[in-house]
Design a binder for these strands. Structure first.
Length: 501
RNA sequence: GGCGACAUAGCCAAGUGGUAAGGCCGAGGUCUGCAAAAUCUCUACCCCCGGUUCAAUUCCGGGUGUCGCCUCCA
């Protein structure tokens, strides 16, 4: 049983899919006028986790995410740069995918674009005009009439009077009501325009999401999501248009999920605010999976403060889990190559599994996996889910340490148990979407790099000679000097490893 | 002005009507020739004031503070 917090009702509800074991999702995508910042990325990582989770528990998922590629800011940028609007959107869509790929965000089933769905958009506007929910001005603009929709304001929990009291909206005498919004904007010079029954022009913001979600998901679908700043007016308007056009106040999305903002110095990160960090820039310094992990360590509805210290902290935490993952992989290799069981082949008699060290580990893993599912079922609580990975991680590391130190002599059956633990840990990682794309240590094949490798080998070997003679002064001097040069030596039991810092 | 959210350890962050997950940092221990890595142990009466209750951090009311939406916005 999955519970989700539905913005429409303001509370957690038990999720009941429209179709058995199927789930349809429409997540508001980006307006590609710019490269995405970390705040833009949050909803997509969130929905990526949600859709993966539904798939994991056996749902057939249909996931749609749009690109609003016809828009004022795109046009403005294009005009400023002297290029076409679709060059601007094309380039930013590319940069969007690059960022999302780095964050392990799986692709949606479909990415409909405004520019490729004009007929559906125009048809919907026509319906709204026919049903008298929309009106056309002499200049060709078409507006939605909010007063005609008795349900207007139900998502954001406000009414027309309250909104007008605040009246931050520009008064436009041509509109029936200041809150009326454009469905179609008549063509102006220097703007792309499409033919329509209302004259040349382009769609207003909001109508595209209604038209495209209905076109690709039908009159009713399960989820609609995005950042909380979309609740009003964007999603409110989508609901108004869609339900009026369909003529059913229960049509359109059944559950509305909204993620909280990324903040900088406790204030919303926004392009207009100038306080943003692009995903691209962050990826120059931190692995994509760390950034993804950062986003998921906090529940999606809570605000999330972004700064460099936070990311660094996350990287340390992420590395803890990664270490466990690597330990398990190493154990797996030993098992595969038959080097795991040290004490020959013992016969397993009776329920010994549960008293062996590995047995305890797998029991813990099973229990934590189950807890993790509970956490995910409760409004996709990734923060809680991740905490269970850490708990397992601790015991995995402990087991590994004792094994390497020779304190544990695994029985024959323990190999299978450890493989199962590895499987569970991997399954947990898959829910969060990490350890899928661990960047190999920069494979630098240049001559310089090869030379460094060779030199390090020589240095380490000289130091090992000194160590074997217990010449600690020399050994420590080498290590210290290397550290000054930015290289850390780690004396392991079997091998000496080094890395740059 | 209208509407809404949040307030938990040094920092970050889950959560529950019966005295609180996890992470980072810090202190001490184990391992190591010494370090590093790993690991173990330790660190909270949950913003304030009322109320409901046998019992509230958790529910209700009020207050204070912070943030968000009402304009483009993930």
């Amino acid at each position: 049983m999955i519970q989700v917090y539905n913005t429409m009702t303001g509370k957690k509800e038990i999720f009941k899919p429209l179709k058995e074991k199927e789930v349809s999702i429409y997540c508001c995508g980006v307006t590609p006028y710019n490269t995405p910042h970390i705040g833009n990325a949050r909803p997509f990582v969130t929905w990526d986790v949600i859709r993966r989770y539904f798939e994991k528990i056996g749902y057939k998922v249909r996931y749609i995410q749009n690109f609003t590629d016809v828009d004022d800011k795109i046009i403005a940028t294009a005009n400023r740069e002297g290029v076409t609007w679709n060059e601007v959107s094309g380039r930013n869509i590319e940069s969007y995918f690059k960022a999302m790929d780095a964050l392990n965000v799986r692709h949606a089933d479909l990415y409909p674009k405004v520019s490729e769905n004009m007929p559906a958009i125009i048809e919907m506007i026509e319906t709204l005009i026919e049903k008298k929910f929309a009106y056309k001005l002499e200049n060709g603009d078409v507006y939605f009439s909010v007063e005609k929709d008795p349900g207007y304001g139900k998502l954001s929990g406000r009414n027309l009077e309250d909104m007008q009291a605040g009246a931050r909206v520009e008064v436009d005498d041509r509109k029936n009501n200041p809150m009326d919004f454009a469905l179609w904007k008549s063509a102006k010079p220097g703007e792309p325009a499409w033919d329509s029954p209302f004259g040349k022009g382009r769609p207003g913001w909001h109508i595209e999401c209604s038209a495209m979600s209905l076109k690709y998901l039908g009159e009713k679908f399960d989820f609609h999501g995005g950042g909380s700043d979309l609740i009003f007016p964007h999603h409110e308007n989508e609901i108004a248009q869609s339900q009026c056009a369909i003529g059913d106040e229960h049509s359109f999305a059944q559950y509305w999920l909204h993620n909280g903002f990324i903040t900088v110095n406790n204030e919303k990160m926004a392009k207009s605010g100038g306080n943003f960090f692009t995903v691209e820039d962050i990826l120059k310094k931190y692995p994509g999976e760390v950034v993804r992990f950062f986003l998921l360590q906090t529940h999606y509805r809570s605000p999330l403060e972004f700064n460099e210290d936070r990311i660094k902290e996350t990287q340390v935490a992420y590395n803890r889990l990664k270490t466990s993952y690597e330990y398990l992989n190493e154990l797996e290799e030993k098992i595969e190559s038959g080097k795991f069981v040290t004490g020959g082949k013992e016969k397993i008699e009776g329920p010994l599994i549960t008293v062996s060290r590995a047995g305890g580990l797998v029991e813990l893993a099973e229990r934590l996996m189950s807890s993790m599912e509970d956490a995910m079922n409760d409004d996709f609580n990734t923060a809680l889910a991740i905490s269970y990975m850490f708990e397992l991680s601790r015991d995995v590391n402990s087991y590994y340490n004792d094994y390497v130190a020779g304190k544990i002599s695994p029985r024959g059956a323990d190999a299978f148990i450890i493989l199962r633990v590895r499987e569970i840990f991997t399954e947990m990682a898959n829910i969060i979407g990490i350890f899928e794309n661990i960047p190999a240590e920069e494979e630098d094949t240049s001559e310089n790099s090869a030379l460094v490798e060779k030199l390090m080998e020589i240095i380490i070997s000289i130091r090992q000679d000194a160590r074997s003679k217990k010449d600690w002064a020399t050994a420590d001097k080498i290590r210290d000097e290397l550290k000054n040069a930015g290289i850390v030596l780690e004396d392991g039991a079997q091998k000496i490893s080094w890395k740059r810092i």
